[in-house]
Design a binder for these strands. Structure first.
Length: 495
RNA sequence: GGGACUGUGGGGUAGCUUGGUCCAUCCUUCGGGGUUCGGGACUCCGAGACGCCAGUUCAAAUCUGGCCAGUCCCA
């Protein structure tokens, strides 16, 4: 006789923060994306938005697991390119904040101020960092003395604050941002350009881990980062003409280095000014993953960010001699030893209810352990894309590795297929109106023509592709018809 | 930046127009018991709410004002 099933599963840490709450059916994703997004984030219990300050949400235990996995990908990839972690303070004196004119113009309407210390008013008000250039660069000026100090590549993952007046949304638009920012100093403009390229490569690898296709575009002059020489942004099409900016890389030239005095002595003994770059990402990536991959059943996490890669569900039965609970525990332990993030759901719910809950929560792979499997020396594995099969118990670890890899591959293939269908060329401005796609058009580079395109699509000229796209280069500007200097440009509606 | 609407247990809602019927309804959730368990089980017992602050009134979930938060639309 096998041991009887325990009356009640032992409590685990996850019980305090349930991975997903059951709820009525989700709103239709295709028909009402925003409603679907808000509902799925709440139902999967990734974020608690009941905190009583606008745009500041609570990270739940389950959401925190996803965030840490996301950050692990970011830190691994950026460190592989020779960047080191640092952490600078959150408060910036107004005097430093105001040194670069364009930068402060771009940000002063959206910063939080600290104006009092205890009961007394501060002589110099402090800004809660909306981004950290002005906190970091005065110190860079002290750190950089010689060409031997270059390149200086550092990054930090910290919270930044922006006083958003628009509607805020979990992960996508928040006032307290979980921000990844790399700041670098380079010998000269060419070296800074090379660093930008290195960042583009790093992001390509990050996005691959998240199974996210994207457009790398150089933003038009009027939409670049405040203080930048140029900005390259990563845009994810989200259905219709909508795009979500995933992050950006900026070339600053010496725009900040001059006002902040970041100089060095070159090999030839002359004093030179560094050229700088930055690379910014945020938890918006998590929103993008939810938005791009999720379906009518809930979230779908790629393995790299999934809070749990595998959930094991025992199927109890009173009429068997098999020791199902012990067998399930053994499966979990074996996977844990193999380094997998795995969760045993031994709760009182019936198996079907657990399937729904974990599908809502986005776990890539579910393993079912029941009398039927044990009698055959097998396990049942079902992935989040609906593929179910029997695997041999004896080769558990290798089978799981294979199934997760296949899952990631299929997830990426599906996202890639959606991506290809999301972009279409347009030869006339009329085609931009109420467009159901992101549009690729000819653009002469003129700002007036750019704004005409923006008006036509009721959105933004995202910019010119920085990486090759499988689209023909148009012969004439879609607005003025000029053929001189015409380039391919993308237009869409930023979320 | 401008406007519209909304706020009732953990989640979704009824009640609000016409103040008293409401120690507030239903579903879900949560805690406990029992029967169960291969795609959202059933049953019994129990828990839990009128966003905050003022005002009007004999009486406020309900009317008024302010604040906070949320949703949507426009620039």
């Amino acid at each position: 006789m096998g041991a009887p099933a325990p009356r009640r599963a032992p409590r685990t840490h996850i019980a305090a923060g349930r991975p997903a709450r059951p709820m009525a059916d989700l709103p239709d994703k295709a028909a009402n994306f925003i409603e679907w997004y808000l509902a799925v984030v709440e139902a999967a219990n990734l974020s608690d938005k009941r905190y009583p300050v606008k745009g500041m949400n609570v990270w739940t235990p389950y959401g925190m697991r996803a965030r840490r996995n996301l950050d692990r990908v970011l830190t691994t990839e950026i460190e592989a390119t020779g960047s080191e972690a640092v952490e600078f303070p959150a408060l910036i004196p107004e005097t430093e904040f105001a040194k670069e004119k364009e930068h402060i113009k771009g940000f002063d309407a959206q910063v939080f101020w600290v104006t009092k210390g205890g009961l007394s008013t501060l002589d110099v008000p402090l800004v809660l960092r909306p981004t950290s250039e002005t906190a970091i660069y005065p110190i860079f000026a002290l750190w950089v003395r010689s060409h031997r100090d270059l390149p200086l590549n550092v990054y930090q993952i910290v919270n930044t604050f922006r006083y958003e007046t628009k509607t805020t949304r979990p992960f996508v638009r928040v006032r307290e941002i979980h921000f990844f920012e790399e700041h670098t100093c380079q010998l000269d403009e060419a070296a800074a350009t090379a660093r930008v390229q290195s960042n583009l490569g790093a992001f390509r690898r990050m996005a691959a881990a998240f199974a996210l296709p994207y457009l790398a575009v150089r933003r038009p002059e009027w939409d670049k980062f405040a203080g930048a020489h140029y900005t390259i942004a990563f845009d994810l099409p989200l259905g219709g003409a909508r795009v979500l900016q995933l992050g950006s890389v900026h070339h600053y030239r010496d725009n900040f280095a001059v006002p902040y005095g970041i100089h060095y002595e070159g090999i030839d003994g002359t004093e030179r000014t560094v050229h700088q770059t930055t690379f910014g990402l945020s938890e918006r990536l998590l929103g993008a993953i939810v938005g791009a991959h999720g379906d009518q059943r809930g979230v779908i996490f790629p393995t790299a960010v999934a809070p749990y890669e595998v959930v094991v569900i025992p199927i109890p039965s009173a009429s068997t001699t098999q020791d199902v609970p012990s067998a399930a525990r053994a499966v979990v332990e074996e996977l844990q030893r193999a380094g997998r993030r795995v969760h045993l759901d031994a709760g009182d719910e019936r198996p079907g209810a657990k399937y729904y809950r974990w599908e809502l929560a986005g776990v890539p792979l579910r393993i079912e352990v029941g009398a039927r499997e044990l009698e055959r020396g097998q396990l049942t594995a079902a992935d989040r894309l609906g593929r179910k099969q029997a695997i041999a118990r004896a080769s558990l670890t290798t089978e799981i590795g294979r199934l997760l890899a296949a899952f990631d591959q299929e997830l990426a293939a599906r996202a890639q297929a959606a991506f290809r269908g999301a972009i279409a060329p347009a030869a006339t401005l009329a085609e931009l109106k109420d467009s159901e796609r992101v549009r690729a058009v000819g653009w002469c580079g003129d700002e007036a023509c750019g704004h005409a395109i923006e008006t036509a699509i009721d959105g933004a000229l995202l910019g010119t592709p920085e990486e090759p796209l499988d689209l023909p280069v148009p012969k004439a500007c879609v607005h003025c018809g000029r053929t001189e200097g015409v380039r391919l440009a993308l237009a869409g509606q930023p979320m």
